[in-house]
Amino acid sequence: MKEVLERINSISGVKGSMVVGKDGIIIESSALSSVDSDLLAAMVAKVGKEMEERINARKNFMVTVNGEGGIILFGVEEDFILAVIARKDANIGGLRLEIKKGIEKIKEELG
């Protein structure tokens, strides 16, 4: 899991990444301060849950949040969420692809 996050973090423009449980508790985090991590974990879990409940989103979906200072991308799976914080100038297409690959690896790891 740590390897997956480090690989994502090595992409230009990425500030940090994490794997979060569906209850908003961090499973693994890389290159993020603890304050940022807790807040980000809670936010992505909340958004993921709302999307599942309110718009009947399927389990495997990806969300992009655009902010003034950067972007947050996260993929929601049945048991976990893979979230990434990046600068606005990061290669979003490449990053999405890497998140998808990362999700598959984590799924394998979790069995």
């Binding site: 209850d23 908003g24 879990a45």
Partner: peptide, 11 residues
């Protein structure tokens, strides 16, 4: 309710 959200808001 999500434990992660509860922890952040508790702060």
């Amino acid at each position: 309710a999500l434990l992660g959200v509860v922890r952040v808001k508790m702060k």
